[in-house]
Design a protein around this nucleic acid. Structure first.
Lengths: 338, 338
DNA sequence: ATAGGTTGTCGAAGCGCTTCGACAGCTTTT
DNA sequence: AAAAGCTGTCGAAGCGCTTCGACAACCTAT
């Protein structure tokens, strides 16, 4: 293991000079810099992370807490995680992966031990028990998702309320009057996950404003659960012509079931998805959808954090405006006179 | 920030004693231990990770390198990552998330800087460029996946060759003679990903032994790609009655297309999947499948690594025996006289 | 009673780095 | 020509922990 001191000796300078070459915190003459860089290369020197962390009280690590359960949005989580890791590297940070399992203890542990300089939390619940800890520490953090009370917190999320409204508007514009929402699994609502409730708010508020009738049914993913849910919906409200699907693992089952029942998409019923673009374009019908900007959220979260660590940046809530892409799963409502 | 020294003072012992209480590396009297533990609790002490790493040259971190691209097996990757993180925690380790993006450089960086004590590599290619580096260092590592040459390496993977054979055997037993394999995306084969080729080996070898005819076609995920591939297969070999699907994002499209063409599953054609159980049970037909034991692989990888770090353990290749679960997507081949 | 073991604790050295103050050698200002 | 300001470099202190050797204090055996 090559040390700073060895590099210094090899280059004929003092240890501190090498350190300053590395950090750029003091000016170094071109000649010296080159000599040092040459030695670093020749010796294959890598700064020791532990020593660096100890001396500077900076670990250059960002902790990312992902949910343990995989009952929703797995591809989204993965995309966010990858975006976080990639963006972090461009700023010289590495990413520590924490699972939700430890809960608040993980926050304490990471904060207390100086393992990470900052944290990103995913799968935030409306009244998340980790929040008091975040507020009580001076370690920067960013939430991906929105809790009930955001004071003193920095958050990024898709504007799910606007998303709900946008879906409704699109269907309204096409003349649909009775619409149904295929929601997330019941468990997601039970644990009060912000995005699910906010979407519903948006859907309800806008459909009321527009004089539409809306049915909301939670639904586990998969074919069987979807079959039951769809039957119930069509039984209760046979006039339903528009669907908004939030649970991405219900998308394909819904399309298959509709087909099976002889309901053509988009001629007889329209379907709008809230899902990553990949899901929308790979479905059996190219889905009109509001995409979930996973990458953007991950990237933004890291950049906020880096700004804070550099003393710039501040607490703020960024709600990304939803964008609806029209594909081939939505069309004019079948005329009522038909 | 509370330090060891403060705890020591508070408990009326020396710093080293506190350290030994924490590590258990020397025997400490019950009375002293309790006093120290009490002080730790009262002061809310957390050992500083950097200092610990520096002094002990152990970071208690395991690096996990996941693939950057998400063109395959996203849920599997996620499950492995979560299993790794969870298992690592039970052994006192944290997990550092690296993306494949940096390639071999990441290995050098982590090894050189002592950021992590060990690494787990996923998405290993037959002739992976990271392997020489692993062999050239004394840092323990485990591969999830199998390269061409495993000398000096520790690997875990599903026995994909046996998996291929098992799928063929199952279909053979049911009387199928002409079978088709829906493979991974062409890109996966182009970069020589071990598991894809090994599966194919197993499929080919066993079908030849059993006198079956086999067609293999790579296939991107999604409905459109699957439609093209299926049409080609049925055009070339209309007598095909058995399908083996390796690309999990082709499962549902295939089922939908078969249904659409009036081919009943399992009466007219049988389908075997190679995918996580969740995919198999959530499909529109409950899929007979060989499951991918993501959790088991993640857990085993960590345990191997921990064993190595403790001086136990050795290089070995663990191929997990495949298990085929019969569900409702396979049945006897339609009789030839029909 | 004495040599030889244990057991529990302490002090000090050091892990490899960052950073602060000092200062020599310049250049610029007055 | 002296004062003032830059630049580039160095030495030393110290970050918070682990670990090694030392050594009291006690417990066996002989």
């Amino acid at each position: 293991m090559v040390t700073l001191a060895e590099v210094a000796q090899h280059a004929g300078v003092s240890a501190s000079t090498v350190s300053y070459v590395l950090s750029g915190k003091r000016s170094i003459s071109g000649a010296t810099r080159q000599r040092v860089e040459q030695s670093i290369r020749e010796l294959g020197y890598h700064p020791n992370a532990g020593a660096r962390a100890l001396a500077s009280s900076r670990s250059n690590i960002i902790a990312l807490m992902i949910p343990l359960r995989t009952d929703m949005y797995v591809p989204v989580m993965m995309e966010i995680a990858i975006a976080v890791a990639t963006t972090a590297r461009t700023h010289g940070y590495d990413v520590l992966l924490l699972t939700g399992e430890e809960g608040p203890d993980a926050v304490r542990r990471v904060t207390g031990s100086g393992l990470a300089d900052a944290m990103i939390l995913m799968d935030v619940q409306l009244d998340d028990e980790r929040l008091p800890l975040l507020r009580g520490t001076d370690q920067p953090s960013v939430l991906i998702g929105l809790p009930a009370d955001t004071t003193g917190l920095t958050c990024v999320d898709l504007d799910f309320k606007a998303t709900g409204a946008l879906c409704v508007e699109h269907l309204a514009m096409l003349g649909h009057r009775d619409i149904a929402v295929i929601g997330e699994a019941p468990a997601v609502y039970e644990r009060h996950t912000g995005f699910a409730e906010r979407t519903l708010d948006g859907l309800r508020a806008r459909s009321q404003e527009l004089g539409m009738r809306l049915l909301h049914r939670p639904c586990e993913g998969g074919y069987d659960a979807m079959a039951v849910t769809l039957a119930r919906i069509l039984d209760e409200r046979p006039s339903t012509t528009g669907f908004v699907v939030q649970n991405e693992s219900a998308v394909e089952p819904l399309l298959a079931l509709l087909r099976q029942q002889g309901r053509a998409v988009p001629e007889d019923v329209s379907v709008v998805g809230i899902c990553p673009d990949q899901v929308a374009t790979q479905a059996s019908v190219r889905l009109t959808s509001v995409s979930i900007p996973a990458q953007e959220m991950g990237r933004h979260a890291v950049e906020q954090l880096v700004a804070k660590l550099d003393g710039r940046g501040s607490d703020e809530v960024l709600l990304i405006a939803p964008e609806l892409t029209v594909r081939t799963s939505t069309g004019p409502a079948p005329s009522a006179t038909h």
